[in-house]
Design a protein around this nucleic acid. Sequence first.
RNA 1: CGGGAAGUAGCUCAGCUUGGUAGAGCGUCCGUUUCGGGUGCGGAAGGCCGCAGGUUCAAAUCCUGUCUUCCCGACCA
Length: 485
Amino acid sequence: MSSAENIELQEKDTDQGENLLAKLALEAELADYSPVKGCMVIRPYGYSIWEQIQSALDKMIKETGHQNAYFPLFIPESFLQKEAEHVEGFAPECAVVTYAGGKELEERLVIRPTSETIINHMFSKWIKSYRDLPVLINQWANIVRWEMRTRLFLRTTEFLWQEGHTAHATYEEAIEETKKMLQVYKTLSEEYLAIPVIDGEKTERERFAGAVKTYCIEGLMKDGKSLQMGTSHYLGQNFSKAFDTKFQDQNGQLQFVYQTSWGVSTRLIGSVVMTHHDEKGLKLPPKIAPVQIVIVPIYKESTEKDIVLKKCKEVEDILSSDFRIKTDSRDQYSPGWKFNHWELKGVPIRINLGPKDVSSNVVEIVRRDTGEKLRNIPQEGLRQYLLKLSNEIQENLFRQAKEFLLKNTFVINNEKEFVKKIESGGYLVCFWCESSTCEENIKLKTKATVRCIPFKLPVDQNQEEGYCISCNKKTNLKVLFAKAY
RNA sequence: CGGGAAGUAGCUCAGCUUGGUAGAGCGUCCGUUUCGGGUGCGGAAGGCCGCAGGUUCAAAUCCUGUCUUCCCGACCA
């Protein structure tokens, strides 16, 4: 990290929103490009964010009764072809291994673009009776989708994710599971990532290939585009029929299981960057920040240095059981340089500690979210003070993002207004007649698509009935349009 | 996958039109000075000019291919 780079970032920031995610991710050392198209290396700082997200979500997944397992990377090509819509949806973006062990393979192996097929294959072996149900499984894995156009974190060729796969005896139970896990994702996003989301159902056009229903959470990024942050699919019996995943019910009848699948990916890291940043760099929510507090020692001569560093160590020791904390005692950088460095990296709280503070038993605290300097904070009770402050920062980031979401959500009643408004981004609440043709027409004109049919509208729109934004047909369906990633 | 732009020192870029010993600023290293918002000064190191071919006495420079990145489009979640 150099000053030249950083100044560069700030200059380009103003006029080049489009490129911001890549710039921030590279500058803050979250990731780097690999030699292979569309692939990225997740660097330690970025991976640590992923680990924070993982550990929070993994806990929630287990609390809702699921167990982790691991299924193989390679899937026999024939498996993909068993479910008609699934093949059609995924075939073009599959990477296939045709040659291994020095010869052409008898059966080609697909590198998983998702694991429904292989998991169903195994479920068929394991599920015999209603007593075996439900099966509630999750796996943390990498997957590969050969995308034409890639983008750091948001759409990479290979990415890390979690995919839950469950099998149930009834429709009701499977639907409940689908919705429950979507709710888990909403909680993860809002309480940990500090990103408000709209939860709802996908239209037919946007649905997962092979699903009966797809539910999603959508977040509004700072550039006004919507990002799908998680999906939860009700698969019905599509896969169980294709893979013959059957169980014997209480009455001795053979039935196909009802299934769900749900996932979030390293895309979430992208969503955090695209939601929480300013001209200085990232603003990481404390709950997922790899470093929550950084201490910057300030000193002149070596006698001062000893005293100050000793105090830093003392403060760090007091706080280390409650915070991920780090003292930046590197001698080759000035305090000013370190201030900028850690701001770029998005560390939520910084403690400046110099000789003046040592002598009067105080510290200076700087909030990353507001930039506010809190001077002369007594060392006594610092732990409590920072716990409170940390929560406040977490909440404030969410509040700001929520305000942004609401400020950029508009109720729109006619197409002319729609076309004009969508230019500047944001969500448009509109009536829609549910025809794919109208959805397509809007997309051709504006690039915007139906992000979801929200469970609950983010803004008030009390009109029960209205007219389709595209064809003017009378309808009572209200949806959320936006340009999306 | 189609159209456009780019790839030269760790970073940002100049040099290419008109072929002839590889450049700058920042960073890095050494010394010194400084340290509460990217210190100042002096010195030094650092480059298969993305990769592979071709043309030429000679290629960063011209030609062909290829890889990667960015933008626009198509595709996709």
